[in-house]
């Protein structure tokens, strides 16, 4: 039994449904299932019980269609050659209800997991201004010393996230078992199809990484990057 299977607990995330729908934009394109956010809001307004029951099924057993995503390939500007993969930008289209569920899980995780004060990514009411203020205070405090700023960029970070390790990290941080199980199932059962040149391809299975357009993915990436920085600090490499 893994570590992530040992941590238990049951949780109800449906309380966050109105907040998650309110956070959803209303002027964006439809998802891969052609369901728009205004339709979801109409559904919530007229038939809230049906929507709640469906989301409950999705969080417990999962819905197969919600694991699918469509990748639209857009050429990057001013590239000398377009026969390289790096010359194309990938935009993921996900089912909108899957994104609503992701926002609900994000709201629930934010209440269960404590992040450090210097952690700013994917947290509500903590933006770039707060991070700049921390850096400024640090520079002011160490005014008489030699100071240096170190920045790190993880190339293709979302595609390289190891989902079993992510689940162990989430469990270690106190995330509920039900949500961790859902995140693990979502990461391991991904199916992707590509849209290029006006056509769509067949579906490919992906067992690695986390979806790019999901609201939950930045938080997962923050956890992984935090682990790498901790490991680097403990080994004396940083």
């Amino acid at each position: 039994m893994d570590d992530w299977q040992r941590c238990g607990g049951d949780i109800d995330i449906l309380d966050h449904l109105p907040a998650a729908l309110a956070m959803s934009p209303s002027n964006t394109a439809t998802g891969i299932d052609h369901i728009s956010y205004p339709f979801n809001k109409f559904w919530m307004k007229k038939f809230p019980d049906t929507l709640r029951r469906l989301l409950n099924v999705a969080i417990t057993t999962g819905i197969e269609d919600w694991h699918e995503s469509e990748v639209v390939l857009i050429p990057k500007a001013n590239r000398p050659q377009y026969n390289l993969v790096k010359a194309w930008r990938m935009i993921y289209l996900l089912p909108t209800l899957s994104k609503v569920l992701g926002r609900m899980v994000l709201l629930k995780l934010a209440g269960h997991i404590d992040l450090e004060d210097t952690q700013f990514g994917s947290q509500r009411k903590r933006g770039i201004h707060d991070s700049l203020a921390v850096v400024y205070e640090f520079l002011e405090y160490n005014k008489l010393l030699h100071t240096a700023l170190f920045s790190m960029d993880i190339e293709a970070g979302l595609d390289k996230v190891d989902s079993p390790m992510l689940c162990q990290l989430l469990c270690a941080r106190g995330a509920p078992f039900k949500l961790v199980q859902w995140i693990r199932g979502r990461a391991l059962q991904r199916r992707v199809r590509f849209r290029f040149n006006g056509r769509i391809s067949k579906k490919y299975w992906l067992g690695k990484g986390i979806p790019q357009g999901s609201p939950l993915s930045p938080l997962c990436l923050v956890f992984m990057s935090h682990m790498y920085s901790d490991r680097g600090c403990s080994m004396g490499q940083l």
Binding site: W43, F47, T50, R53, L54, N56, D65
Partner: peptide
């Protein structure tokens, strides 16, 4: 709305909504 009122069984809800869409 009339189409969605007929969706009672929770395991048929998603399929019914896809048909409506």
């Amino acid at each position: 709305q009339a189409g969605m009122e007929g969706l009672i069984n929770v395991y048929d809800v998603w399929k019914g909504v896809r048909d409506i869409i």
